[in-house]
Write a protein that binds this DNA or RNA. Structure first.
Lengths: 128, 128
DNA sequence: ATTGACTTTTACGTTAAGGTCAATAGAATG
DNA sequence: CATTCTATTGACCTTAACGTAAAAGTCAAT
């Protein structure tokens, strides 16, 4: 017997609002069952929510996230669609590699800032 | 004699609009000189624009980008501000490390999708 | 002198991703 | 059964980061 989650259980677990989960349902990303009017989420929905949040953190739009979820769920049967998909995947990978580099560069910059601040702190600490 | 850039030179170089550059000026991120009413950007402005775009790619807001630029430009003199800054830097680094992990996971997932698609392609290619 | 390319300011418009609020409905607990 | 949570639907609201359009100035080239 699969465990079902209420909406507030999930909002607490993931630190998001009920509005957000209903929004994701409206967008067709999750498909909770209903007991009466109340939503009950499955493990699969919970897993999708994790994917959504991960995509969100790296700046994907809902449309892009949906695209990835669908691509995973059912690879297209038609040749043209498959080639299109491969092209999109390649684009995304290039984009993500650029982002990785941007993140590394920014972390390096933050480390410089940190050292500047620590140096100033030491000066002030000594002087006061 | 330092080379100065017109606004369209920069829009072409960076693939952004004039509106965007004026917006960044309104936000106090760049400070082009004026010849008459026309803006002329320095190397330093050009460099800042690169930083803005990098920050933008990894999902920083303009406010966050400004914060980093200012922190770099002039580390605060007061102790409380310095400690606050160190705290913020640590937060950002944690956030960026999470993003790195998210990106790596997503790239791995894209690779799975790619393989699925290539497999399907091979099947179709053989069958047709 | 006119065209064309480029620039300026002002100001309203747009989009994504939810926030917020009101009215209503079930569900659970004393 | 009355109360008290918690959920739902529907509607309008919000914010960031620009887009877009209008009206007008600048400057070189034709």
């Amino acid at each position: 017997m699969e465990k079902l989650y209420t909406i507030t259980e999930l909002t607490r677990e993931f630190g998001i609002s009920t509005r957000t989960l209903r929004f994701y349902e409206d967008e067709g990303l999750v498909h909770p069952e209903r007991r009466g009017r109340t939503r009950l989420f499955r493990h699969s929905d919970r897993h999708i929510i994790q994917n959504i949040l991960r995509g969100r953190r790296i700046g994907f739009t809902i449309a892009e996230i949906r695209e990835i979820i669908l691509a995973y769920r059912e690879p297209p049967g038609e040749l043209g669609q498959l080639n299109l998909m491969l092209k999109r995947v390649t684009e995304k990978r290039i984009e993500l590699n650029q982002k990785r580099k941007d993140i590394d560069d920014t972390i390096a910059e933050l480390e410089i800032i940190e050292e500047l601040a620590l140096t100033r702190l030491a000066e002030i600490g000594v002087g006061s």
